[in-house]
């Protein structure tokens, strides 16, 4: 068993290093770091000296090594735009994004998965067809448009819910949370629905497709032929077999929630990392872009690792000792 997980872990490190390389490339070669640090009136000699002092004349590999070391302790340098350490900026913004993503992920999973199972089992039912049509509309609605429509109805016309920001937040150490105040919770409603809707429909459709695939297999037919009750066949045999692909896909989807938060945050002016990032792109604020890139990659890699561990728990074929796999 450990061999498989170890291999995946090493692969994750390679992925992280690749992303770090891209981030480093951005950082070092796109736009001159010196120009962004000094004023117009700095002389060439002073620039050269600064260059030497910052180690920008060192060999590529040395610079990259230093970058990796800095990044691994959370040191991303100064934001050009905000003139503050990127680390501080990220720490300020991270709670907002994580809270939003968490609520959306739960919403997407808890609503999407049962709908997927239901539509697969009652394939020709009236309600299933309704869900399927809704889901098609769901994947055809761009996230930002959902946000705009919600704002129009519940913010502008009905005036029930706040249309921007996080509301009041409570500080717990460096973490700020909106879960503990009424205005914080109210502010969370529309952004989290906006963010969850697309993923919800995707998860539902994927689970349905996988489930239908499994329901066609021979062992399901054999289970029916042994007289097992439909409930047992569907949930004990079919559902568990859909788990492997569904776990992968759900893992990917949860990861992409953090990425799609960029759009939602920008519609609702939600003070999270996505908003920071989109502003950074507009202003060509390279250190912030690099930091975001590395951080997002870290989340994805972590989620993928969890997915791999789950595989292991679900599928005995991965656990099996290869030697007995074809033994008599």
């Amino acid at each position: 068993m450990p061999a498989f997980l170890l291999r995946r872990f090493l692969q994750s490190i390679v992925v992280m290093l690749t992303v770090a390389l891209i981030a480093f490339g951005l950082f070092r070669y796109v736009g001159d770091p010196i120009n962004n640090l000094v004023g117009q009136d700095t002389t060439l000699e002073e620039r050269d000296e600064l260059r030497e002092r910052l180690g920008l004349n060192d060999a590529f590999i040395v610079q990259f090594g230093r970058f990796v070391r800095d990044v691994s302790i959370g040191e991303f340098g100064f934001s050009y735009q905000h003139r503050r350490p990127v680390r501080e900026l990220v720490a300020e913004r991270l709670p907002a994004t994580l809270e939003l993503s968490l609520v959306s992920a739960l919403l997407a999973l808890l609503v999407g998965a049962p709908m997927g199972v239901y539509t697969a089992l009652r394939r020709r039912g009236f309600v299933s067809r309704g869900f399927m049509t809704l889901s098609l509309i769901g994947i055809s609605l761009p996230t930002f448009l959902i946000g705009i429509l919600l704002i129009l109805f519940f913010g502008v016309i009905l005036r029930w819910l706040p249309t921007f920001g996080r509301g009041e937040v409570v500080a717990l150490g460096w973490w700020t949370t909106g879960f503990l105040t009424a205005s914080g919770l109210k502010s969370l409603v529309m952004p989290s629905i906006t963010l969850a809707l697309f993923q919800m429909t995707l998860i539902m459709r994927l689970i349905r497709a996988e489930m239908l695939e499994v329901l066609r297999t021979d062992f399901i037919k054999f289970a029916h032929a042994r007289g097992l009750p439909a409930r047992s066949v569907h949930f004990r045999h079919a559902l568990k077999n859909t788990m492997v692909p569904v776990i992968t896909i759900t893992g990917l989807q949860l990861g992409s929630i953090i990425a799609f938060a960029i759009i939602t945050e920008s519609v609702f002016q939600w003070p999270g990392m996505g908003l920071l990032f989109i502003q950074a792109i507009g202003e060509v604020d390279i250190p912030v872009m690099a930091a975001y890139l590395v951080l997002i990659a870290f989340f994805f890699v972590a989620i993928n690792l969890v997915v791999d561990v789950l595989y292991f728990v679900v599928d005995p074929r991965l656990r099996a000792d290869k030697a007995t796999a074809n033994g008599q």
Binding site: V15, L26, L252, G255, S256, A259, F260, I262, I263
Partner: peptide, 22 residues
């Protein structure tokens, strides 16, 4: 595989962002 573990919109956004700065 690596690319697939990142959502398309993010990749597009990044490429776009990098292209803008270059």
């Amino acid at each position: 595989d690596v690319q697939l573990s990142f959502p398309a919109i993010l990749i597009a956004l990044l490429i776009d962002g990098v292209a803008r700065s270059v």
